[in-house]
Amino acid sequence: MSKNSMGRDHPAIEAYGLVKVYGENRALDGIDLTVRRGQVFGFLGPNGAGKTTTIRILATLTRPDGGTARVLGHDLIGERDAIRARSAVTGQFAALDDDLTGYENLSILGRLHGLSGAAVRRRADDLLDAFELAGAAGRPVGGYSGGMRRRLDIAAGLIVTPDLLFLDEPTTGLDPRSRNQVWELVRRIAEAGTTVLLTTQYLEEADQLAEQIAVIDHGRIVAEGTSAQLKSRVGSGTLHVRLLDGEQRPRARQVLAGALDGTVRPAADPLTLSVLLPAPADATDVGRLVGQAMTMLAEARVAVAEVTLGQPSLDEAFLALTGHPAGPAPTDHEDVNA
C-alpha cells in the first residue's frame, strides 16, 4: 500500500560523506552508504564505532557536521518530517516509558500516529497478541524481561507499518531464545517489504539477517559486501588446534604455517594454536587442507588433543579487515599495551 509511493526506483538510503564530530572525536569520518529498498542492511562494528550516531543522523535526530543523504528519496535536512513519517526507530536510545504498561505505551504512540481511539485499541491489541505480549499488556514495562521489552520496542515501531525500520542493536543482551525470536521478527518484517537497517556487534547476527553488510570502525566503513564476500576477505574460518603437550607448540606452529596459507597465532591457552584460514576458491578444499595439515602434524610427531573448525569471530574478522583488533581507539589501545 505504502510501497507504491512515487519514485520506487531510488534506494531507501543514499548517504555521502557523513561526518559527525564531538569535540576532538570524529565519531563519523566520512560514511558512504547505499541501502536498496526492501533490503536488510547490517551495520557491523564494535563499541564506539559510530553505529548509533549513523542511525541517529539518518533518522533525523542528530544533525551531521558534513555530508548529505537522501532517506526514502527525501533530503535529510530539508524534508525531515517526510522521513519521520515513513520510518521508525527502535533500540539503544529510543526508550519506552517504564512506568506505563505495554498497552499504554502503544496507545500513546498510536495516538501520536494520528490513529483514532478505536483504531489504536485494535492495533495495540493485535500487535501485543502477535508479539506474545498479550498476557503482560497491563503490566508496567519496567517489570518486563529483556526479551519482552525488545519485542514491545519493535512492536512500537510497527504501529503504522514503516517503509524503513532502524534497529539499533536489537539483540544485544538477550538470551539465545529471545535472540532467535527477534531474528524471526526481523525476517518477517523484511519479507513484508520494509527496508531494515540494523546495527550489531555480532558477525553471526549480520550473517543471519543481512543481505548486505558494512563493517564500521572508528567512524569509517572498512569493508562492505554480502556475507559471502566479506567471509572470503576474512577467510573461510578459524582452525583451533589443542595440543597434548605445550612444549610442542612452536613445532606445531611451524608445521601449520607451512601446511596452511594462513596466519597462525598462539592462543591465550598455552596448549592451543589458532589459524585464520584463507578462503579457497572451492569451499570443499577447506576440509582437504585441514586434513593435510593434520597428517603433517602427525608426521612431525605432534600429539593433537582437539581440533575444531569454526566461523571467524567478529574479533578475527576485524583483525583481518582492519589490521587491528576490534576495540577502543588505537591510541588508547597502544597505551594500554605499552
Binding site: 513519517a85 508479539f131 521478527l185
Partner: peptide, 16 residues
Amino acid sequence: RIDLLLAASPPRRRAG
C-alpha cells in the same frame, strides 16, 4: 499473523 498485521497497517495520517 505478523505478516497479516504488517499488511493491514492503519493508514499513515499526521496527528492533529
